[in-house]
Write a protein that binds this DNA or RNA. Sequence first.
RNA 1: GCAGUAAAUCGGCUUGUCGCUUUUUGUUUUUCAAAAAGAGGAAAGUCCGGGCAACACAGAGCGCCGCACUUCCUAACGGGAAGUUGUUCGUAAGGACAAAGCAACGUAACAGAAAAUAACCGCCUUAUUCGUAAGGUAAGGGUGAAAAGGCGAGGUAAGAGCUCACCGUUUUUGUGGCGACACAAAAAGCUGUACGGCUUGCGGGUUGCAAGGCCAUGUAUACCGACGCGGUAGGGUUGCUCGCCCGAUGUCGGGGGGUAGGCCGCUUGAGUUCCGGUGCGAACCGGAAUCCAGAUAAAUGACAGGCAUUCGGAAGAAUACAAAACCCGGCUUACAGAUUUACUGCUUUU
Length: 132
Amino acid sequence: MTKNKIHTFEKSERLSSKIVIDKLFSHGKSFTAYPFRIIYLSVPKEISVNAPLSVLMSVSKKKFKTAVKRNRVKRLMRETYRLNKQRLILDLQQKEINVAAAFIYLDQEIKEYTFMEKKMIEALAELSKRIK
RNA sequence: GCAGUAAAUCGGCUUGUCGCUUUUUGUUUUUCAAAAAGAGGAAAGUCCGGGCAACACAGAGCGCCGCACUUCCUAACGGGAAGUUGUUCGUAAGGACAAAGCAACGUAACAGAAAAUAACCGCCUUAUUCGUAAGGUAAGGGUGAAAAGGCGAGGUAAGAGCUCACCGUUUUUGUGGCGACACAAAAAGCUGUACGGCUUGCGGGUUGCAAGGCCAUGUAUACCGACGCGGUAGGGUUGCUCGCCCGAUGUCGGGGGGUAGGCCGCUUGAGUUCCGGUGCGAACCGGAAUCCAGAUAAAUGACAGGCAUUCGGAAGAAUACAAAACCCGGCUUACAGAUUUACUGCUUUU
């Protein structure tokens, strides 16, 4: 494993299956780590493709009316996730479970990158603790 | 120099680290590496028009919806260009808005005598029992969005295009213009105005790429074949019996439709850039070069530094609006700031 394989965010790591998303929102458990609300669900290995963790980012249209601002928030979330996900993935690989999760942004304003990063690390730690 | 008007263009640049999507090449079947490309003038609103696709469709009429000065442009348009007439804003350069028709049918509330076969008051004439009655009259009054061409003079019992001058209107003729129309002359005393669901002309089938087409794992399975039970269980016909008819459950194979998912549609097109020509212009014609996002819950990014611009004494702060979703042509709306050209007003200097 080379160094630059760690911080990726490829298609397989994104949650794109309609069925899994529907399941996630109807049966998933959730908690709030402000400014994120996180919904997660452990998925059987046959359904999920490759990655131990597949994720989607969501920003409400009500809170950010223009697409440019929504994109900005989503990209910030994605970057912070991408750079800090490694610990959680190792954890999941040890436990041998696959997880699907949705990150929903709750705040009304765009926050600084440093703030977002700090909160993302907290949220990922919390998620790691909750999954058994 | 300052303020403004019109048209057009641009709308940050750059280095490093870590990423994303597509394509190509190499390595090689499993993803790994390299290279190239990767949001806009409005991509937006989804308001019009067209391509494309599926479905519908003998022909004609009625209805419904949209549009409406002229000529031109266009694949088409409710769009655009150049003009016409009117109203209006601005000192000006210029800007904004409006525009078929009233022959037939219909409407014009309230107010007012009356909203179109005009007589309430007033004015005048005649009659008079002096109360009024008959008639003439649109000059004056008030109402109203709108009052019977305007104004002056003559005229008259009082008045009236009744007559005349000027203005307006309509018609005819002439000149200019492709035309809307403009100008000029002559004639007509001049049969209201505003509009409509009315009339006329032109256009319109419906739904939108989540259109539409193809492949198809798993699960269940219409139907068919083979093997097996067995022409057995059971069912139908009938009040019952006979008779007649249908006929399982299993295994394997074929097989249609089709869910998850994938592929096509999908980016070479009314394309883009440059040059030349025609036209006042929108635009068109000819030639050369070129391939320039194709994602799918949705890539085109994040962070750190440097530069530029603006604000500020400095520290520092700010750098608009807004992100493709089948593709084009428009319209509308948002937009920090910068640049160019032409023109206008004011001011200074010459």
